[in-house]
Design a protein around this nucleic acid. Structure first.
Length: 574
DNA sequence: GCCGTTTTCGGCCCGACTGTTTTCAGTCG
């Protein structure tokens, strides 16, 4: 998938144009095109081949030419032309908080600074304070920026950020002058990774709030404190920004602070067309500056003649247009989930017994649970032989009766290197549910990997393809695979795609979920792949992915009642 | 450079904060 490479190229061009001091709307145009391509679920090579590059919003004649050049030659003549004027390395300098395009260029021109190493040296000799429009304070600020950059963590998985955010929200709630608290930003939109935490507080006592915040025991360093916003670094090197507004602006501030930036820009453009102005304090009539909304988010959207839009959709991916048309999806909710169709037990590599898993599922209000332990070919995970599985099946039946709960006897088969499964089809058909996925030989070529998975699906015995792309967020890239071909095969064989809820996986990802639903009508199964009873609760992260993928209740297999589920499992088999 | 149920030309989100200024530019989100 070249999409990321093309997006990187356009972002680079945008940054270089900015350094050059080009028209800022041209700069924005390249960055916007990059964002659009990053969020594309179709490989850009396909669009190029079909002559459809211009159909990507934000891509016009000129940018299409640049993309073409890159796809055909593997490099970009335009980028090379730009780098003859401005060294590409300067983009790295802008990563330092406090250094933007103007300062980066100044540092280069005046002091020959091209990279972080050069900058560090210049800082230690106090060379920056004598530059035009800089002084000792700017120098100090950049020095601190460099330190922060070194220590600040990269984007972290949502699953790690969420507990920390909840802890901070609880901490702030204990203060009487704090009227409302909410975590915003990408966390509220439930993006798979989080860059920093954005916390919004409604209070009439800003100063006290700031003091309370910077006194949070997790704070390692205070980066900035102002009357309405401040930033700190936590002990885990995560940046947290706090914003305080008056209670009558809480809704508009919530809207503003949740983003995404692209979503906000679209809303503000709509406001302008209506003779209104939208900012974090409210919606105002331009003619007399009268505030017409701001206390709640619903009110803000309503002032723009829009229904409230769920945070998970706020990515400027068509949600505003659909909202305008009154056609937003009714997103699936946690309470719709009636069971988990892929969990392990201590029969293979899980740590809880079948009984413990079942009791936990019952406590969560589920109607059913599928025990899907590994099979023999996965030795490292204690995979079971057919004999063992038969034994397990009897026990599952017993527990099911004893607990008066629907426990499905299943397995997670391994899709072997050549596309075969652990057991012959006739054996697999004896299980009530067959989940299957790739667990080895990740480094095959894209063609081989695609062929392998398609072949497995075509056997017609797989109900659910587990963690379909094999990625581990921020750790292991998805294996090279043509998702379109897999979705096509899944559609034909009526195989469900898993949304694996483990915060490390979240696989299938949001964009592909939407594609699977809209272009192929495929049902998804939101599973935890839990290896312990505690991890059954991770289902909320899978639900978040489904919501970000625009899925409704009817699109999700495990929202089915027990009867409907049984029907589906049988039908898929026939 | 892109885009158009007001436009093929003239727009393109909005505000906080800081430092170096003599009224604002730069950075950030």
């Amino acid at each position: 998938m070249k999409n990321q490479e093309v997006a990187d190229l356009l972002n680079k061009i945008s940054a270089l144009l900015e350094l050059k001091g080009e028209n800022r709307f041209k700069v924005i145009a390249y960055a916007e095109a990059a964002r659009r391509i990053e969020n594309l679920s179709t490989p850009i090579e396909n669009l190029y081949r079909e002559g459809k590059l211009n159909q990507i919003p934000g891509v016009g004649q000129s940018i299409a030419e640049k993309i073409k050049d890159f796809l055909e030659t593997g490099k970009s003549a335009y980028l090379e032309e730009l780098t003859r004027e401005v060294p590409e390395e300067l983009i790295e300098l802008e990563k330092v908080p406090g250094v933007g395009p103007k300062v980066a260029l100044l540092l280069f021109k005046e002091l020959g600074i091209k990279n972080l190493g050069d900058l560090e040296k210049a800082l230690s000799s106090n060379l920056l304070r004598n530059l035009p429009r800089l002084g000792p304070k700017s120098e100090e600020n950049i020095k601190r920026g460099l330190e922060t950059l070194k220590r600040r963590s990269a984007r972290i998985p949502l699953g790690h950020a969420l507990p920390l955010a909840e802890e901070l929200v609880q901490f702030l709630k204990q203060f009487p002058f704090v009227k409302q608290v909410e975590a915003c930003g990408s966390l509220r939109r439930m993006k798979e990774t989080i860059g920093d935490l954005d916390i919004l507080v409604a209070s009439r006592e800003e100063e006290k709030t700031m003091k309370a915040f910077t006194g949070w025991p997790e704070v390692q360093e205070v980066l900035a404190v102002g009357p309405t916003k401040s930033s700190v670094l936590t002990k885990s090197a995560l940046q947290v920004d706090l914003r305080v507004v008056r209670p009558d602006s809480f809704g508009s501030a919530l809207q503003y602070f949740t983003g995404s930036q692209a979503h906000n820009i679209k809303l503000r453009e709509i406001a302008i067309k209506k003779g209104l102005k939208l900012n974090e304090y409210g919606v105002f009539r331009v003619e007399d500056d009268k505030k017409i909304a701001g206390e709640t988010e619903e009110e803000v959207y309503s002032a723009l003649d829009l229904p409230w839009i769920p945070p998970e959709l706020r990515e400027d991916q068509g949600e505003i247009e659909r909202a305008k048309a009154g056609d937003l999806p009714a997103l699936v909710e946690l309470k719709d989930i009636k069971g988990d169709l892929h969990v392990h037990s201590d029969w293979s590599d899980g740590t809880s017994t079948i009984e413990e898993m079942v009791k936990q599922a019952k406590a969560m209000g589920y109607e059913y649970l599928a025990i899907c332990d590994h099979a023999q070919s996965l030795g490292v995970a204690g995979g079971l032989t057919w004999e063992k599985f038969k034994e397990q099946g009897k026990i599952i039946q017993e527990i099911s009766q004893r607990e008066d709960f629907h426990v499905l006897w299943g397995l997670e088969a391994n899709i072997l290197a050549e596309g075969d499964l652990d057991f012959p089809e006739e054996t697999l058909k004896k299980f009530q549910i067959v989940v299957a996925g790739v667990h080895s030989a990740f480094r095959q070529s894209k063609e081989k990997m695609t062929e392998r998975i398609v072949k497995a699906i075509q056997k017609g015995v797989i109900h659910i393809l587990s963690h379909p792309t094999g990625r581990l967020i921020e750790k292991r890239d998805p294996y090279e695979v043509d998702v379109e071909s897999i979705l096509k095969a899944a559609q034909k064989n009526r195989t469900s795609m898993e949304i694996n809820s483990s915060p490390e996986r979240l696989d299938l990802r949001d964009l592909d979920c939407r594609k699977a639903k809209e272009e192929y009508g495929i049902k998804m199964a939101i599973n935890t792949d839990a290896h312990s009873r505690e991890n059954l609760s991770l289902i909320k992260f899978g639900v978040a992915v489904a919501r970000r993928g625009w899925l409704e209740k009817k699109d999700v297999l495990n929202t089915y009642s027990w009867d409907d589920l049984q029907g589906w499992l049988k039908k898929e088999r026939d």
